[in-house]
Simulated scan of single mutants.
Amino acid sequence: MKTTPASIKSQLSTGELGFLITGVRNAIWSSIERELQPLDITAAQFVVFNTIAKGRGSTIGDLCRVLGYDSGAMTRLLDRIEKKGLVRRVANPDDRRSYLIELTEQSAALVPKARRHVQAVFGELLQGFDEREAVALKASLEKILENAARSG
């Protein structure tokens, strides 16, 4: 008796989607770590700088949401970055119980260099994709995020 292969959607629904996305995320993170090594910053530190520089986060809570860290882990990460002189915490004028996280002159100068390194990583990871495939990849990832937002 011949069995018909399961559809790709069925295969992905068995958990394969999670394995693939986790594998891609880990590959991206490792590649960024290697690329940023000469700048003496980690991928997590870059995400903090970039988030602040793009105006998408200035509090520990904002940064936790972007990185998926809990507040304790974020505080430890910020402590390490602050020791390097790359961020500073300033009193939040709107909430005396919290601090705003700001770039220092040193990290503000580092952001454009780090972005070029990260762009190089993504350029390498997208090698072999034509424009149509890149559009389909972007649309697929956006659809997954939309579905997750609806169900979550």
Rank of each mutant, 00 (worst) to 15 (best):
96 R>D: 13
46 F>D: 03
75 T>S: 04
72 G>E: 03
11 Q>C: 08
98 S>L: 06
54 K>R: 12
94 D>Q: 11
31 S>N: 06
12 L>R: 03
58 S>P: 11
38 P>M: 03
91 A>H: 12
89 R>D: 01
131 E>A: 09
88 R>C: 04
50 N>F: 15
16 E>F: 05
41 I>V: 14
48 V>H: 00
70 D>Q: 13
28 I>R: 13
96 R>Y: 12
103 L>M: 05
123 G>Y: 10
99 Y>D: 05
18 G>E: 02
88 R>V: 03
126 L>V: 10
58 S>H: 11
143 K>A: 11
116 R>D: 13
49 F>S: 01
93 P>W: 05
28 I>C: 13
29 W>P: 03
97 R>Y: 10
110 L>W: 01
150 R>C: 08
98 S>I: 14
115 R>W: 04
1 M>W: 08
53 A>T: 11
1 M>K: 08
8 I>T: 14
19 F>W: 08
35 E>D: 12
113 K>N: 09
38 P>C: 01
36 L>T: 02
34 R>T: 14
27 A>K: 06
148 A>D: 10
100 L>P: 07
123 G>A: 14
109 A>R: 09
95 D>Q: 10
25 R>A: 12
149 A>H: 02
13 S>F: 03
7 S>A: 06
49 F>Q: 00
93 P>M: 02
9 K>L: 08
5 P>L: 14
66 V>G: 01
85 G>E: 04
13 S>P: 01
127 Q>C: 05
96 R>F: 03
24 V>T: 15
78 L>S: 00
42 T>S: 02
35 E>G: 12
10 S>T: 11
37 Q>A: 13
100 L>N: 01
124 E>Q: 09
144 I>C: 01
91 A>I: 05
80 R>C: 00
63 L>W: 04
51 T>V: 08
135 V>R: 12
7 S>L: 10
115 R>I: 07
42 T>K: 01
112 P>M: 04
8 I>F: 07
100 L>G: 04
145 L>I: 09
92 N>R: 07
98 S>K: 15
115 R>C: 03
